[in-house]
Write a protein that binds this DNA or RNA. Structure first.
Lengths: 123, 123
DNA sequence: CTATAGGGATAGGGTTTT
DNA sequence: TAAAACCCTATCCCTATA
């Protein structure tokens, strides 16, 4: 139906990482129009860059927690079968305040600018 | 980066609608400084009000297209969706029929036929 | 300089494909 | 089941105009 799914090449991924180093995460359109990367990434949209960056960072941080919480949630709603132990250890995952939330960024060995200067606190 | 994204609460939206009824659409700064709404909306800018109003009126118009499709999908594979908003008058029924239309608003005209075909050609 | 209207970009949840 | 790629759109940003 829609798009045939284009796998990201190593070259594209490298360009994306370099682009983030140069312009910062979130500056997708800027990266895309930078002549340094536009050639390699010309068939990607700014949204594609954002999505790919998200995927990269998701796998890079796996190991913290919150995996358990998400997994539990999914299990709770889309696991139609079994679980035949009414006595079990109630599966309480209550202690879950701190969501790490560190700015991921773990590009190949290089220190990345910490992209967080202005917050919109208030609320 | 910067703004983590502030979702509008039902209370804020109600204040915005009331503000438009009282001062008119387009008078964002006036609404914002009206003591009747300034408390609820004090973390929103006049531009935020404008944007939200635009979105409200846009979504009010496609009441028959993807909405049905989305609803069907949700029904099919229940999406979790936790509210995370311990406030609000959760008890269902929020008479949201009032589409104010105080002054400007010229959405009239006709069928907003959305683009139907979503094909990714390119590549 | 300040405010509004519009266009456009981003964030994050959702869906589809592998 | 998970993960990668892609979609949807509320929210936010930028800029021309008044």
């Amino acid at each position: 139906m829609g798009a045939p799914k284009q796998k990201w090449t190593a070259e594209e991924e490298a360009a994306l990482k370099a682009g983030v180093l140069k312009h910062g995460a979130g500056k997708w359109r800027t990266i895309l129009t930078d002549p340094e990367f536009s050639d390699v990434l010309h068939m990607r949209s700014n949204v594609d860059l954002k999505d790919k960056w998200r995927n990269i960072n998701v796998t890079a941080i796996w190991g913290s927690r919150q995996k358990a919480r998400l997994a539990a949630l999914k299990r709770n709603q889309l696991t139609p079968k079994h679980d035949a132990n009414p006595l079990a250890i109630s599966t309480v995952v209550k202690s879950d305040e701190e969501i790490v939330d560190a700015k991921p960024l773990a590009v190949s060995g290089g220190a990345l600018e910490s992209v967080g200067s202005k917050e919109r606190v208030k609320r």
